[in-house]
């Protein structure tokens, strides 16, 4: 399959990109790494008249550390995050998550902003950034605004992003030296989207305890009570029954098999965090 006809533009700054999209009156789409949009274009599942390629806008391409936070430009690729170990020393979870995304060839092109905007329920960034309490900076004709990542994704392939807005950057807090985290996902095959995924972050210095379950039918779901219990009582709160109950309550629509898979995944993510 070949894509239907479209026009293409590659603006050099965020303002021009937003204008280009607005001028197309709803007939344009932003293109970043193209790892999801590309196949959808070729299958003719989407037919924009214009593609606005934001992948080379300099302001979206850098990772900066500012005031205890890490700012990642929306067009930074997974591979760049994977390779940015040194500048991400204060949040080693980011390169660890990036390293596990699909394959290197996909990571070379796919971007963190693209992944968040596409909002595949099984994608790694919506889950990781929710667990890390990141903030997503979006920009549009009405100006810039910030959205907590835990609230950014609304449902499968649905976010708070307005039609005329784009993601500009992701602000991720640095972790304290005593912070512990764990990630676990189960893929039926290397590089596939996972069948079940969970991530856990415990940062006592910042009074943060989060356990999130992902790869569900919609947005990642927090297991707050379980996370609090573990933060207060440690590993004794991490029993198979507690995890199973937490999953059953937070994600009641899961069938027995799905619950079991997610419970095991959650258990492993938290165990990894506690062992770190």
């Amino acid at each position: 399959m070949k894509s239907a006809k479209f026009d293409y533009t590659r603006p050099h700054d965020v303002r021009a990109a937003i204008h280009a999209l607005a001028d197309a009156l709803g007939e344009a789409k932003f293109l970043a790494g193209g790892q999801s949009l590309g196949p959808m274009l070729n299958l003719r599942l989407t037919r924009p008249k214009l593609l606005v390629d934001v992948s080379r806008i300099e302001a979206l391409r850098s990772i900066d550390v500012v005031n205890g936070s890490i700012r990642i430009g929306a067009a930074v690729t997974h591979a760049e995050i994977e390779d940015a170990g040194a500048s991400l020393a204060r949040n080693a979870m980011l390169p660890a998550v990036a390293r596990e995304i699909a394959y290197r060839t996909i990571r070379n092109r796919g971007t963190i902003g693209g992944s968040l905007a596409h909002a595949d329920p099984a994608a790694d960034w919506p889950l990781a950034l929710a667990a890390l309490d990141a903030v997503i900076i979006v920009n549009g004709p009405a100006g810039q605004r910030s959205i907590p990542s835990a609230r950014f994704m609304l449902a499968a392939f649905t976010t708070q992003l307005a039609d005329d807005e784009m993601i500009e950057a992701i602000i991720v807090p640095e972790l304290s030296p005593s912070a512990r985290w764990g990630t676990y996902k189960f893929c039926k095959r290397t590089g596939e989207f996972p069948d079940a995924a969970a991530m856990a972050v415990f940062d006592p210095a910042r009074r943060i305890a989060r356990v999130y379950v992902g790869a569900l039918s919609g947005a990642p779901v927090p297991l707050d009570a379980l996370a609090r219990g573990i933060a207060q009582q440690g590993a004794v709160a991490l029993t198979a029954t507690a995890v199973d109950r937490a999953i059953a309550m937070a994600v009641p629509e899961l069938d027995a098999v799905g619950r079991k898979m997610h419970a095991a995944t959650t258990m492993r993510a938290v165990q990894q965090a506690l062992a770190s």
């Binding site: 196949p39 299958l43 039926k188 095959r189 290397t190 590089g191 596939e192």
Partner: peptide, 13 residues
């Protein structure tokens, strides 16, 4: 109808 749904073994499998 695509490799998204038709799973092939890869080198790591």
């Amino acid at each position: 109808s695509t490799f998204m749904d038709y799973t092939m073994p890869g080198a790591t499998e």
